[in-house]
């Protein structure tokens, strides 16, 4: 299997742009490191509290992997799993996951119309789309939210509020300042249902 991959990589490497070459190396590394076991073989997670990575901006993934590797964002088991990754390997993994099409988890629950409407109103009022873009697809260091796992979103938004998650800047801590649990649940449902 790996040998086939190496051959394919060698064949197309010369013809592909740099980002695609990184993505090819990243695919091999993700396979070797078993990232897909938790984050899903196509980067769409089917595991509770594990985020999907497919379609995230490469810059976001790279920055988060560094924060995880350096122990600045505490998120077990990722801190341990990120140890020993070189900068170039991190960039390769990021290029790979950024190249996969984003989409919801297979086990996504059905839409709750009332909760969705509340999340939609909150998102408009709190301007989530200004930074994450109106379709919540993210850009640069700002993550893609559309179709992300609802349980993960709930968990991570509460972490920002409670100063348990630290990012590359303090914007999200400020956004979530004092936001109650029921509002977080509505925001998470709305984003997961995009």
């Amino acid at each position: 299997m790996t040998r086939v991959w190496l051959l394919a990589a060698a064949l197309c490497a010369a013809a592909l742009p740099a980002a695609a070459q990184d993505a090819i190396r990243g695919a091999a590394l993700a396979e070797a490191r078993g990232c897909g076991g938790c984050h899903g073989p196509a980067g769409r997670s089917a595991v509770e509290l594990v985020p999907s990575l497919a379609g995230q901006p490469a810059e976001f993934i790279t920055l988060q992997m560094i924060l995880l590797r350096e122990g600045l964002r505490q998120a077990p088991p990722m801190n341990q799993l990120a140890q020993g990754l070189e900068d170039q390997q991190v960039e390769d993994l990021a290029a790979y996951y950024a190249s996969l099409p984003a989409g919801p988890a297979e086990d996504r629950a059905a839409r709750d119309a009332a909760l969705y409407a509340r999340g939609q109103a909150l998102s408009a009022q709190m301007n989530c789309g200004v930074c994450h873009l109106p379709d919540f697809s993210g850009r640069n260091q700002i993550p893609h939210l559309a179709g992300q796992r609802e349980d993960f979103l709930r968990h991570t938004l509460a972490q920002y509020r409670d100063s348990q998650r630290r990012g590359t800047d303090t914007n999200m801590n400020a956004v979530m300042y004092n936001v109650p649990d029921d509002a977080i649940a509505a925001l998470a449902h709305f984003m997961a249902q995009q």
């Binding site: 197309c12 980002a19 993505a23 790979y96």
Partner: peptide, 17 residues
């Protein structure tokens, strides 16, 4: 399977630009 993934990855990386 993996080969397909790689090709898809290449195309998408190009589109992502």
């Amino acid at each position: 399977m993996i080969r397909q993934k790689i090709i898809a990855a290449g195309l998408l990386a190009a589109l992502a630009c």
